[in-house]
């Protein structure tokens, strides 16, 4: 296990290197000159030249990449081109809001998804199955910005139950996490259902049933435990996706998270922030995948890594 872990962690390094090249190429391929955008709309050519020099954009590309890489290795990403604030602070202040929102969305979505999935699987082919799946799938089918705006209109403006947008109290979490989690809940429900059906056909479950183990016990003890493995994978994957910060949900509900920061920095061509943010997302994604694999091993001791 330890050897496996070390190997996996070492394997992250080349992937991150490739991503760093990707990211660097990506920001420099974006049409638009950050110096011009940072200098402002009525800046003179000499102002722009000054800004360009200040940002180090007059250096050859490989020098810029070298600096980016050596900074990144030290966990330092320089200053934001737009706000001149340290990139680590800029990202740091927005990381927690995104993490909490993701956590809240994942929590309810996983729970709801599991319940609907199990209910559907155990009543397969009967009306709870159809209703459950229909509800779950409906969740994916809403364009999220539309749903968000409709909810604001209903719950905030008409009913005055919840604050329209922003970040702070638990009430602020309700609508964004609902909007964000809907898709996840649907995926989880559907996935749980099929994982359950698969496992219910396995021999040991049939054996348990044949031995007269009560069916509720079969569901919760034998089936669920084994269905947990693919479900954990799915939770991990979805969590990884959401941690990128949902641009749409964060914009509609003015959530001060990473997704909005990303949109802002892309529109300002704030190279330093974009690079750092994408590297962070990639790292998160990779680490979560690793964590999922480790959880696999814990949930099912039969899986051995060589």
């Amino acid at each position: 296990m330890l050897k496996y872990l070390v190997g996996r962690i070492a394997g992250i390094i080349p992937v991150l290197l490739v991503i760093s090249v990707f990211v660097f190429g990506f920001v420099h391929l974006l049409p638009g000159d950050p110096a011009r955008l940072v200098a402002g709309s009525d800046a003179s050519p000499s102002d722009i030249a000054l800004v360009r020099q200040d940002l180090g954009l007059d250096q050859p590309l490989w020098v810029q990449y070298g600096r980016f890489l050596s900074n990144a290795v030290q966990g330092e990403f320089g200053r934001s081109m737009k706000t001149k604030r340290k990139v680590s602070e800029e990202i740091g202040s927005r990381f927690l809001p995104t993490l909490y929102l993701t956590g809240a969305a994942m929590a309810w979505a996983t729970l709801a998804g599991l319940l609907i999935g199990v209910a559907s699987a155990t009543k397969r082919g009967r009306w709870p199955d159809h209703v459950g799946m229909f509800v779950a799938v409906s969740g994916i089918a809403f364009p999220s910005f539309w749903l968000g705006l409709l909810m604001i209109d209903l719950f905030s403006v008409q009913l005055r139950w919840l604050p329209t947008s922003g970040y702070g109290t638990w009430q602020h979490f309700v609508m964004p996490s609902l909007t964000l989690g809907l898709g996840v809940a649907a995926v989880m429900a559907r996935f749980t259902r099929s994982a359950f059906i698969d496992i219910a056909r396995e021999d040991y479950v049939r054996t348990a049933r044949a031995k007269g183990v009560p069916s509720r016990l079969v569901v919760w003890k034998h089936t669920l435990r084994n269905a947990m493995i693919p479900i954990i994978t799915m939770v991990g994957l979805q969590f990884g996706f959401l941690l990128g910060g949902s641009i749409v949900v964060e914009t509609v509900f003015s959530w001060p998270g990473l997704g909005r920061l990303l949109v802002d920095s892309v529109s300002y061509r704030d190279y330093t922030v974009i690079q750092a943010e994408i590297l962070l997302f990639s790292l998160e994604f990779i680490l979560i995948n690793l964590l999922v694999d480790v959880l696999y091993a814990l949930a099912n001791p039969e899986i051995r890594y060589s």
């Binding site: 992937v15 490739v18 990707f22 996706f241 641009i247 892309v266 994408i278 990639s282």
Partner: peptide
């Protein structure tokens, strides 16, 4: 594929459309 997956999807789309 890992690299592509790790890249947030909508960002990739923003980048491609911007380019």
């Amino acid at each position: 594929c890992d690299v592509l997956l790790a890249f947030p999807g909508i960002l990739l789309a923003i980048g491609i459309v911007a380019i």
